[in-house]
Write a protein that binds this DNA or RNA. Structure first.
Lengths: 265, 265
DNA sequence: CCCGTATATTACCCGTGGGTAAAAAATAGT
DNA sequence: ACTATTTTTTACCCACGGGTAATATACGGG
């Protein structure tokens, strides 16, 4: 009778526990995915927890097994987006090149983030809907992001790849343009998120790049991350960014595991 | 004009108990001024009509003599901002010059609007809080504004003042940058709204202009050194914007009179 | 088979705030 | 001064939705 199906339980006593914890995390994430989509779709105040639950085929109180309340769900959505931004910055900072080159890399990654749900949550959600503590965390993180843009610009000014300019205002101009993507972009349009991102990287740095001598500016200034030397008419050659996707995915997974997990009561 | 008395409160037609004999329209406008400030300060959902009324030294039901409901107040706030934008576009369109020149003018005016309450209401308020009808009106108006940017860019491309580019995306980039001003600018900072506006007009067109704006660009590029000690150069003096203020004020008054006024029950 | 734990459901509470009816106060006209 | 109209207040309703307590169900281990 010892057909021994499902050996997992007999072999490792703590594996079931692990699998259960994993299942729990997966449910938690499912809640967040649903919530972020609904919040973006109907607005935080327009969306109800009943509707979130309904889309998950559960009922509202079940959500409270994973989150303390609505505002915590909002915060967690934002938190995931923030981790993705952190990854962008980390990857960019780790790269070598001029300040301008780093700036362009950050713009591409950040812009593409703004075309995704969790990225949008960074700019579409209202700080005032968060608890006092979480609001402070978000504000600090926002300053950090702004600082990254500013630092790259300043770095570019020093190494000569960027024209002398007010780094603060230039960063506001660039970041504002990018953040606004999160307000108008919706998948299914004529351009993919990546296409928008790369176009913006060029457009937003054309004005401050020193090498902006007419047409040569583009090609010379964007050698590494740019494959647009071919007419930007076709969206082919999605190959060179494979490594980036790998890195992105890995960092994201790591981020998730390291993020504060749902209260294990 | 000078209603100088009782410095304790701001400008409320209801101030003390008597002397409540002002025109209906003025009261209506006072409500909107208070409401737009509160909505921006606490968010539409965070702000209550009770608080709006309290700041005006009246009670909530009194508001319903001038507006049908909260969402109509929101719409009227937006509507005033929209009229101001319309004025910007009209003035710009009436001016002569290259497409680039018009674009810059529009940017300056639009940017400065974004530093004011009614301008901010254009980009900080959520369409979904409006009634179905009003939402459609707003959406149409938004497209019109976007179209103005796009048209000037296209015009500039044709007359050679602007480099060939995707007008749609360029407009998104510029308008996004400007709209974001409405999210971060608050009076009392180190820069005035006008200063920000002029800086942005240069920065945002540097990338797409065919003629590099030498001197203006240079001036803008070295703000840190002499930004503080630089009063308006030449004889323009601090009142060089008088004409525009005149135009603005006149147009605004006209707009108010032509805007649908409070339901005359 | 039973028990303990985690998870989910039913049923409910209740604070909030938009909105309203009716009375009161102010205002204007004659 | 009296009346008609507008404006404002007092007092109230109630829908909505976040949140909770009590209960039921699923499940793994002994």
């Amino acid at each position: 009778m010892d057909d021994g199906h499902i050996p997992s339980s007999s072999q490792s006593p703590w594996l079931p526990f692990e699998s259960r914890r994993r299942a729990r995390d997966e449910k938690r994430e499912a809640v967040l995915r649903t919530a972020v989509a609904l919040f973006l779709e109907q607005g935080y105040h327009g969306a109800t927890l009943n509707e979130v639950a309904r889309r998950l085929n559960i009922t509202k109180p079940a959500l409270y097994n994973y989150f303390r309340g609505k505002d915590e769900i909002l915060y967690e959505c934002w938190s995931i987006g923030n981790e993705l931004v952190d990854d962008c910055i980390a990857e960019t900072s780790a790269s070598t090149g001029s300040g301008l080159s780093k700036l362009r890399k950050l713009i591409v990654r950040y812009a593409e983030l703004m075309t995704e749900d969790y990225g949008k949550s960074l700019v579409r959600f209202d700080l005032r809907d968060l608890s006092e503590d979480n609001r402070k965390i978000v504000q600090t993180a926002k300053r950090r992001i702004d600082g990254a843009f500013r630092d790259y610009i300043a770095e570019g000014v020093e190494d000569g790849s960027v024209k002398p300019c007010d780094a603060k205002l230039a960063a506001f101009a660039i970041a504002g343009s990018l953040n606004w993507i999160g307000h108008w972009f919706q998948p299914g349009g004529e351009m993919t998120g990546r296409a928008v991102a790369e176009e913006f990287a060029i457009r937003l740095t054309e004005g401050i790049a020193t090498t902006a001598t007419r047409k040569t500016a583009r090609k010379a200034a964007v050698p590494a991350a740019e494959k647009a030397d071919k007419p930007p008419r076709n969206g082919n050659a999605p190959r060179e960014d494979e490594s980036e996707h790998h890195t992105r995915a890995a960092a994201r997974a790591a981020g998730q595991s390291k993020r504060a997990r749902g209260r294990l009561r």
